[in-house]
Nucleic acid binder design. Structure first.
Length: 348
DNA sequence: GAACCGTGGGC
DNA sequence: TGCCCAAGGTT
């Protein structure tokens, strides 16, 4: 941490020296900016896919676990995605979470094929009209793919701007957002927005990191107004954890497993084990695990089912790997199948 | 404008 | 362990 004694005052104000700020940032980015697959292309669709996947999701998850590469192989163009069945789209997203993103991207492809001849819009209004595309994603696609002068604000920019401007309001409230977007608009250059926006995010990701920011190495330290970077940005408190018990059936008969498809807002379209009814009718406990979803801490219990269920459908064991399932159920099903005699008989 | 939506990783 | 975080968007 930088002490107050050694941290100098900003020698320039960002807004009064925008060109110098932009130049310092872009020069630094061109020297040390990392290469990602989505920085190697100017295909707006490929860039959009990366931006959708990266919403609230770490780069390592998207990259190291192969989601981005597999997606573009399965759905290489807007047309290919538009023609794909939703089951296949959700399967490709399995394990990434926030499944609305996958359904939005699929719907987006269908709309773009129907109304824009398969080409993504090149205007802010056009992009914002698409499902799952907000101001950040629109700005990212337009600046990264087309080098258009459009601002963007994401979690990295929250951090960089909060520190740069010594901004002590909560960044995740509407008032804070309004201020951050105003600064982003004021600072985005007319030319070279691709490198500038990339550099802004890269800075927030590396030197201007959440913990242990490396201020001495910062290319724009002369513009920075805060003396206490670690305290910024300020965020609202998150909701307290609630503990929930979840009981589901393991109903396996003649090589088929009973599953239900989610229809509500949560995990819509994905398959899960049927929920148990009355506590006193539950069979023996086969599996128990804990997982988190949003602010809930869930204990999942899987019980042996002896009766006949009316809800859900039978799925042959061979078809189960192709179904999209939420991660906690996928893990439970995999473990229980591995233990199951029926499975061993058909797979050995 | 607050609440909601998944998951895996870091400490 | 429990809590925070991560290239946000929708309701």
């Amino acid at each position: 941490m930088i002490s107050d004694a050694t941290k100098p005052e900003a020698v320039h104000h960002v807004l009064e020296a925008a060109s110098a700020f932009q130049a310092a940032l872009v020069t630094w980015f061109r020297q040390v900016g990392r290469t990602y697959p989505w920085r190697e292309t100017q295909d707006p669709y490929a860039i959009l896919v990366s931006e959708m996947m990266l919403q609230q999701t770490q780069i390592a998850t998207v990259l190291d676990r192969g989601y981005y590469e597999r997606w573009l192989e399965a759905f290489p163009t807007v047309e290919a995605l538009a023609k794909a069945p939703e089951d296949a789209v959700l399967k490709a997203w399995e394990g990434l979470g926030y499944y609305r993103r996958a359904r939005s991207l699929h719907q987006l492809a269908i709309v773009v094929c129907a109304e824009h001849d398969g080409r993504l819009p090149e205007t802010l209004e056009g992009m914002l009209a698409l499902p799952g595309v907000g101001r950040y994603t629109a700005g990212a696609v337009l600046s990264f793919a087309h080098d258009l002068s459009v601002p963007l604000v994401d979690g990295n920019v929250h951090r960089v701007f909060a520190r740069l401007f010594d901004f002590r309001q909560e960044v995740d409230r509407p008032a804070g957002q309004k201020q951050l977007w105003a600064w982003a608009e004021a600072l985005v250059p007319k030319d070279g927005a691709r490198a500038y926006n990339s550099g802004l995010m890269e800075l927030g990701q590396t030197i201007c990191a959440q913990k242990q920011p490396d201020c001495p190495a910062c290319p724009v330290r002369d513009f920075c107004q805060t003396r206490d970077p670690v305290a910024l940005p300020v965020k609202t408190k998150r909701k307290a954890t609630e503990f929930v018990e979840e009981h589901v059936w393991w109903c396996l008969r003649e090589g088929k497993l009973r599953l239900v498809q989610e229809t509500g807002k949560r995990r819509k379209g994905l398959w899960k084990l049927p929920e148990c009814g009355e506590a006193d009718s539950r069979g023996s406990l086969l599996y128990k695990a804990k997982y988190s979803i949003t602010h809930y801490r869930v204990t999942l219990h899987v019980h042996a089912c002896e009766e006949t269920l009316t809800e859900g459908q039978w799925h042959p064991l061979a078809s189960i790997p192709a179904l999209a399932m939420p991660a906690p159920y996928r893990k439970a099903v995999q473990q229980l199948l591995a233990e199951s005699k029926e499975f061993k008989l058909t797979h050995t």
